[in-house]
Amino acid sequence: MRRAMLFKSNKWWLIPAFLLAVALPFFVGAYRLQIFIFVITYSLLALAFQLTMRVGLPRFDVAAWWGVGAYTSGMLMLKANMSFWLTLPISVLVSVVLGFAVFSVSVRRGMMVFMMFGMVFALALQQVFGSVKFFGGWGGTPQLPPVTIGSYVLNDKMWIYYLGMALLIFNLGVYQLLYKSRIGRAWSAIGSGLRLASSLGVNVVGYRLANVLVGNAFLALAGSFSVVYQAMIIPTTYGFQQSIYVMMYVVIGGLGFAMAGPIVGALVLTLISESMRAAQQYQPIVTGVITVLIIMFAPWGLLGVLRSRVVSVLQRLLSSRAALPDIPSSLGSPASVTAEEPGKDA
C-alpha cells in the first residue's frame, strides 16, 4: 500500500524531461528543430484525442478543427491585416462556437453518431477549405504575413520551438487542473461506466460536450500555432489522414497515460517517419504495422511497457511479496475506451 503510493507520487522524471526539452535547441540544428516543432503540434492534437477518450468518445475530426484554427488565424492575418496574437482568441472562439453547433447535435446521440458525424464534418470541411475561392483553393492560401512581436519577426526556429513548448505546457497545466477537479472525476466516471455515472446524477451529455469543446479550444490554438512556422496554409495538411495518425500517436504512447502518452506517441511516430524519408511510400505501412503490433502485444502502449518494466525492477529491489498494481487506478484504463453501453444515452 505505502509502496504503491510512493511509486505513484514518483514524478521525478518530469524534471529531466523538462530540462531536456528546454536544452534541445542548443543541440540540434534548425532542420531537426523543425521536426520537434511538428512533434509539439502533433502532441497538442493527440492530447485533444486523449481528452475525449476520457469520456469514451473517439474523435476522428481532430485535424479538421486544427484546420479551423489555422484558417481562422491565417485568413484574419491575410484579409484583415490582424496581428497574429489578436487572432488567437478569435480562433479559439470560432472553434468552440462552431464546435458547439456541431456537437450539441451529435454528442447526445452516443459514441457511434459522434464518431461518424465528426468524420463527415471533417471531410466536408476539407472540401470547403479546398474549393471555396476565399480560402485560396487546393494549392493553398497566398503567402502568409510574418508573425511579429513588436518589430521582431518571429522566424527563428528556436523561438518558435519555445512558443510551442509554452503552448504545450499551458495545455498540460489546464488538463491537469481539470482532471484533478470534480469535472475530471465526472469525465472518468463517464468513461468507465456511462449508465452507472448517470444513475449517480452525472449529466453525461453535458460533461461530454464540455470535454469535446475544451479539446476544440486547444485544437484551434494548435492550428494557429501551425501558422507561425508555415509559409502558407494547404488544406490537405489538415486532412482526414492526419486524424488517423493522431489516433496512432495515442495508442502507441499508451491510452492509459493522459499526459505523457500522447506526447511520447507523437514523438516516437514522428521520429520514425522522419527516419524513413528515403522510403516515404512505405511509411504509412510501417507505422500502421507498429500500431497494430502495439495493440496486440502491448495494449497499454510504450509507456505501459516501460512502467511494467520499472515496476518489476522496483519489485525485485524491494523484494516485495505484494504485487504492485500494474497501472495506478488514477490513470484510467483502456477498458474505459470500450465502456460504452448500448441503450439509452441517459
Binding site: S188, A189, S192, G193, A197, S329, G332, A335
Partner: peptide, 13 residues
C-alpha cells in the same frame, strides 16, 4: 462499479 477506481473514488462520484 467503476472497476479501475478505488472504493473511495467510486463513492465520491
Amino acid at each position: 462499479l467503476f472497476m479501475f477506481s478505488t472504493v473511495l473514488e467510486n463513492v465520491l462520484v
